[in-house]
Amino acid sequence: MRRYVLRRVAIMPLLLLGIVTMVFAVTRLTPANPLVTIVGERNLGNRVVVDAAKRRWGLDRSVPVQYERYVANLTRGDLGTSFRTRQSVGRDLSDRLPATLELTLAALVFGLVSGVGLGIVAARRRDGWIDHLSRLFALVGSSMPAFWAGLLLLYVFYSRLGWLPGPGRLDPRAVTPLRRTGFYTVDSLLAGDWNTFWASVRHLAMPAFVLGWGITGIVSRLTRASLLDELGADYVRTARAMGISERRVVAGHALPNALLPTITIAGFSFAFLITGAVLVETVFSWNGVGSYAVDAARSLDYPAIMGVSLLGGIAFLLTNLLTDLTYALIDPRIRLS
């Protein structure tokens, strides 16, 4: 098992180099001019300014040389400087990553917990009203685009009813908690500031719900189907014949087996979260990596685009590894092979 993990980690740099190369190629092939961002539209006609900018950002070199330099800098941990923020991309990302992590983790936890819970109830009360309701909830959640659901919820719960706060991680005038982890919820707790904690949880609720809803949908339907399958399995009949209580038969015997496919989907749904986060962060003015990615793409900010892609790649590879490890943790048959 340890060798397997080491091997997986060892090939990661290679995979990341692949991602870098592909994103590099795609951005350079895009028929648009990043100089618009760098010097501004008015200066595009000014040769002196343009030439200076090109020299300053290395755009006067050939693409292979640019690529070689980028990779060389990358091995030193230097992600370059954003055309737009004029800050190092590494710094930009580490500033914004906690916001995204806080949002996606909250969404993932919400999606998995509510999905598995709904799936169990739906399987136990098959064709009952909870089953039908959860089917509808799943259908809406996985078919409604996140930005649309976000706007709708903002309209209803913020603008109309006023039950939840509007966009942003905290109210615009609120003092952000002292940064330790970058998670406002955790940092405010560490500072013992209950008001800020509660405010950050309330701000987190809607975007996390919107982002996690799709996962709830997929996970609940999948858990229901595989739990029903497992409840018909021979070992469940054995457990019942041995007088094991129905609650334990479901939770202790059938559910661990039923969760195996769910874990796979949970891993995949992380990709869903990454793309979903871009939209949800934009709708909810969430100052995270997603909205950074949108701004970077809009202005063809080469280093920022590269940085975001690289971060996404790392996140994806780590999630896949984590999925496989969780799988092995639950299913002993995988542990050996």
């Binding site: 021979d234 070992y235 009949r237 054995t238 457990a239 014949a241 041995m242 087996n257 639950i330 002993p332």
Partner: peptide, 16 residues
């Protein structure tokens, strides 16, 4: 007590 025909599938694969 009852025991079943197929010992391959009649035990839970994920529990010792």
């Amino acid at each position: 007590g009852m025991i079943f025909q197929d010992p391959m599938t009649s035990l839970n694969p994920v529990l010792t």
